[in-house]
């Protein structure tokens, strides 16, 4: 099997001591098992996420992504760019498409990049890790790596917003994407195809600025998982993961609920199913422990 190589944009929240450092740990373990090499874009910067529009105008905001693409093209030539964070992927791909469609914008961003001697060619395809897994690797190859099937674990696939809209995964619908459920089944766990909150918004950045409004939505996401008999929720997005996991205590206080629902990444599931240790799967990074995965990892 061929080794696959990508130019990797890990993003701010994946860094050591940041909210999704556990995501990066499990992605690295998953990629080792799948023989995928991730070449980090040297000196990448923040993409401004989905809240950058407030202070940043169109050109300053898109130029942040232009710098990352330019650095990737210079240092990792010919490699597709892959991001694990939904907002990183969205911002970078959106910037790339805008530069394609608007030649003036493309010229202007290059004028700005020239201040640091950089040039954007804008040739590199921008992918989310989910696309790499589904389109480049494929379910069959993933299944062939499963050493410890996640038998008896019922998992609600929470796709969220920005991995799904506006770009999404080719061939999947916006209203009912199925790839996460298929992935769950591929790993030997039980999916919940009728999980009705799979594309519900968690509030995104507004979890910080409008906590009551966001937590009302998060409550619905968790509640539906319980109603469907889920043992845990899986998501491909770092902000979805954090928002749905870390506010459960505050939601319990506000609404009198008793939520204690583990929220994991697809890479957490895959690392465990591929036979990696609890540490390699970053199970120690859970605020709400995923006990059933810990048991399988210890087997």
């Amino acid at each position: 099997m061929a080794n696959r190589e990508y130019s990797f944009y890990p993003g701010c929240s994946s860094q050591k001591g940041a909210t999704s450092s556990n995501y990066l740990t499990s992605v690295q373990s998953m990629c080792e098992e799948l023989d995928i090499t991730l070449n980090e874009i040297p000196d990448w910067n923040c993409c401004a996420a989905s809240i950058g529009y407030g202070s940043g105008g169109v050109l300053p905001r898109l130029t942040l992504s232009a710098r990352n693409i330019a650095l990737s093209e210079e240092h990792n030539p010919g490699q597709d760019i892959v991001a694990t964070c939904a907002a990183c992927w969205l911002s970078t791909r959106e910037a790339s498409e805008r530069f394609d469609q608007d030649k003036q914008l493309f010229a202007e961003t290059n004028e700005a990049l020239a201040e640091a001697g950089l040039t954007l060619k804008n040739d590199a395809p921008i992918k989310h890790m989910a696309e790499v897994l589904i389109q480049d690797v494929g379910y069959d190859e993933i299944q062939s790596k499963v050493k410890k099937p996640l038998e008896g674990v019922k998992i609600a696939g929470y796709v969220g917003c920005q991995t799904n809209r506006p770009f999404g995964i080719a061939g999947e619908s916006y209203e009912n994407p199925k790839y996460l459920d298929k992935l769950v089944e591929t790993l030997g766990a039980d999916a919940i195809p009728e999980y009705e909150k799979k594309v519900q918004c968690c509030g995104g950045a507004l979890a910080f600025s409008e906590p009551e409004k966001s937590q009302e939505m998060i409550k619905g996401i968790i509640e539906a998982a319980y109603d469907n008999g889920a043992d845990m929720i899986v998501t491909p997005c770092p902000l979805c993961q954090a928002n749905t996991e870390i506010y459960q205590d505050q939601i319990n206080e506000r609404y009198g609920t008793k939520f204690n629902m583990p929220i994991v990444y697809y890479s957490t599931l895959m690392s465990v199913a591929f036979g990696r240790s609890a540490k390699d799967a970053a199970l120690d990074g859970q605020v709400i422990p995923a006990k059933k995965l810990e048991d399988i990892a210890a087997k």
């Binding site: 701010c12 860094q15 050591k16 001591g17 940041a18 909210t19 999704s20 450092s21 556990n22 000196d43 990448w44 910067n45 940043g56 105008g57 050109l59 300053p60 130029t63 942040l64 710098r67 202007e108 961003t109 004028e111 700005a112 990049l113 201040e115 640091a116 950089l118 120690d284 990074g285 605020v287």
Partner: peptide
């Protein structure tokens, strides 16, 4: 280990922030 109190001094960053600031200022 998903929050680091030491981020209050220093913390993560790119090598030369002033270069990025120059790019964005131009934009």
């Amino acid at each position: 280990k998903r929050m680091n109190p030491m981020e209050i001094i220093g913390g993560h960053g790119i090598k030369n922030p002033s270069e990025l600031q120059k790019i964005i200022q131009k934009a």
